[in-house]
Design a protein around this nucleic acid. Structure first.
Length: 282
DNA sequence: AGCTACTCCTGGTAGC
DNA sequence: TGCTACCAGGAGTAGC
């Protein structure tokens, strides 16, 4: 599941290969991957120059220009199994490639997506398309004080709230489980009962884990996900709870437990993450 | 407001 | 070995 660190890794590796290039052709092999209308996608993309590539939440935003003027954007979302990679024109096209964009230097940008959940769509106004996203967890105003105020203004369980992209942008199943464990918070804790020091622990955990994962080029959770260079990320070696059900907690040795929260597999240490806050002594 | 269920998809794998 | 059934899940949507 590509989350913020994986998408950031993709953006960094892809940027030098596509920025400044002009799209000279589009080959849509699965219409739903571009939003369902292959022709309008091609009209938006072909002839435009890629002026920049940014990450926002789990989206890749390819900003387009025509004749020196802004001309919309391509928004990419990898969802479960999406991958972007740039290949030589004559390179073989894999069986799961959904969209091909030919670039003016003779290379081709491949959007590959086994499960077809990912998207690469053309939008006239990227700002509007991304307007409902919450703040980036590695940028202001996200910190302990902001998080405490935001958590206590809602009445939701911590895990679904942290997965809500309108609340905080970029977290997914893996990093939420890891951050809650690091902060010692149970995924079912009601958000409005989180205390300031717990919110600070959680904000710090989120930022530290994301920064560490970016440094390791993300996580490779299964055989699907690779960076655009084909490398696996390295952060999965540092998972404390994700996909470790039955294994001992690396902190306290208690067995990691898997529960289901909002139809999502959720991993936690029952000893390190009690459902009710520990009484504070002194 | 917040919850659950459902949809989209297919490779991997558990169970027989 | 070969088959089937089920599982993983991000985001959007519907219904309560």
């Amino acid at each position: 599941m590509p989350e913020l660190p994986e998408v950031e890794t993709v953006a960094r590796l892809l940027r030098p290969r596509v920025v400044g290039r002009t799209i000279v052709g589009a080959d849509v092999r699965w219409a739903r991957s571009v939003g369902g209308r292959a022709r309008s996608f091609a009209q938006g993309a072909v002839g435009a120059r890629i002026a920049g590539l940014a990450r926002r939440a789990k989206y890749l935003r390819f900003d387009l220009m025509r004749a020196g003027a802004p001309a919309g954007a391509l928004l990419g979302h990898l969802r479960m199994t999406g991958r972007f990679h740039v290949e030589a024109q004559e390179a073989d096209v894999g069986p799961h490639v959904r969209v091909l964009l030919s670039l003016d230097d003779g290379t081709t940008l491949h959007f590959d997506d086994v499960r077809k959940f990912g998207r690469l769509v053309f939008v006239e106004d990227a700002e509007a398309a991304l307007a409902d996203l919450g703040p980036e967890p590695l940028e202001t105003p996200f910190d302990g004080a902001w998080l405490h105020a935001a958590l206590t203004s809602r009445r939701r369980r911590l895990k679904p709230l942290l997965l809500d992209q309108a609340f905080v942008a970029g977290l997914g199943n893996i990093y939420v489980d890891e951050a809650l464990h690091r902060a010692g918070l149970h995924p079912l804790r009601p958000s409005h009962r989180v205390r300031p020091e717990e919110a600070l622990r959680l904000a710090t955990a989120v930022r530290d884990i994301l920064a560490r994962a970016i440094a390791r080029e993300g996580s490779s959770f299964d055989t699907f996900y690779r960076t655009p260079e084909g490398r696996p990320g390295g952060f999965q070696d540092e998972f404390q709870v994700y996909d470790r059900a039955g294994s001992p907690c690396r902190t306290c040795r208690a067995p990691i437990v898997r529960i289901v929260v909002g139809q999502r597999g959720t991993h936690l240490c029952p000893a390190c993450q009690p459902r009710r806050p520990q009484r504070v002594s002194r």
